[in-house]
């Protein structure tokens, strides 16, 4: 339809594949998010530690450089489960901070502006909507968590050789599972809270509250009731238990067993999905 004609004309052209449409939401969300210079800067800051780790891994296997720096190769810590456990702690915290920055603005504005009926009146399902929004977080968090970790692993393999890769194959699996579990739970909590409160500032505060408030409240329950089950609501302790198990780090002692930690994560995921299913709707029935 030419602009000057100003008459209505239908569309008979090609249509995209239905399965790929969730990526439209992801693309537009990125376009909006990266208008913020602060976010770009924060993403860059999040990569400082992995870059430092990469330098460390390279140096620890490079005797001439160590000699120049007057360091002994035996004095350098080993790249093992403990090394990646520390990596997960640092990058896991950065991932959490990035989630509090990005997560609240994903669903809350759509609900506050009543845009949900526009999305869902199209050949576009609620599942696709949630997957589209979740992909925004998963991809961002991947960039600062398991992707650099996998690169570190590969650098280590490159420096030491395939024998190390064979004896430490479990470590690759632990890196992927440990960090994916963390970014999935972070994304689900951020989306669920963003959908629940509709107001992004409140959603951001709630995400912080779930982790810090949960830790404080859990410790209080443990102290008052003289139990250890208060730690079940402390998600940081839950994930540390899982990481310690995955990275075979025997020095980390938590109040929870591994089974309890996995069960807590499962329940948390189920709760978030239930909340999303309740809130991501085209309309609300007011009782």
């Amino acid at each position: 339809m030419a602009v000057y004609k100003q008459t209505y004309k239908g569309y008979e052209g090609r249509r995209t594949a239905s399965w790929s449409r969730f990526l439209v939401l992801t693309r537009y969300s990125y376009a909006r998010l990266f208008q913020s210079k602060f976010l770009v800067l924060f993403m860059a800051v999040c990569l400082f530690f992995p870059v430092g780790c990469a330098i460390f891994v390279y140096l620890s296997h490079n005797s001439p450089v160590l000699d120049v720096l007057r360091l002994r190769s035996g004095a350098m810590p080993e790249v093992d489960g403990q090394f990646f456990y520390v990596y997960c702690m640092v990058q896991g915290t950065m991932a959490f901070l990035l989630t509090t920055l990005v997560g609240p603005s994903l669903i809350a504005p759509d609900l506050a502006n009543g845009a949900m009926s526009l999305y869902l009146s199209r050949p576009f399902s609620r599942t696709q909507y949630v997957v589209g929004k979740m992909t925004v977080l998963l991809a961002l968090l991947s960039l600062i968590t398991w992707v650099p970790a996998a690169l570190l692993y590969l650098i280590q393999v490159g420096c030491v050789g395939w024998s190390w890769a064979q004896s430490h194959a479990w470590l690759a699996g632990s890196i992927l599972v440990g960090l994916w579990v963390w970014i999935v739970i972070l994304s689900l909590i951020a989306l669920a809270l963003s959908a629940w409160v509709k107001w992004k500032i409140a959603a951001g505060a709630l995400i912080l509250g779930v982790f810090f408030g949960g830790a404080g409240f859990g410790a209080a329950i443990n102290a008052i009731l003289r139990t250890r089950y208060g730690s079940l609501i402390d998600l940081t302790q839950v994930i540390h238990t899982i990481w310690a198990d995955l990275f075979r780090h025997s020095l980390v002692v938590t109040d929870l067993s591994v089974e309890e930690a996995w069960s807590t994560l499962g329940v948390s995921c189920a709760l978030c999905l239930w909340l999303l299913a309740k809130r991501v709707r085209a309309f609300e029935v007011v009782k």
């Binding site: 569309y11 052209g13 090609r14 249509r15 995209t16 239905s18 449409r21 439209v24 939401l25 537009y28 526009l118 999305y119 199209r122 050949p123 576009f124």
Partner: peptide
Amino acid sequence: RMMGELSGLPADA
């Protein structure tokens, strides 16, 4: 444009 793409229109269309 975003609404069009969600309805299945290619980005340029």
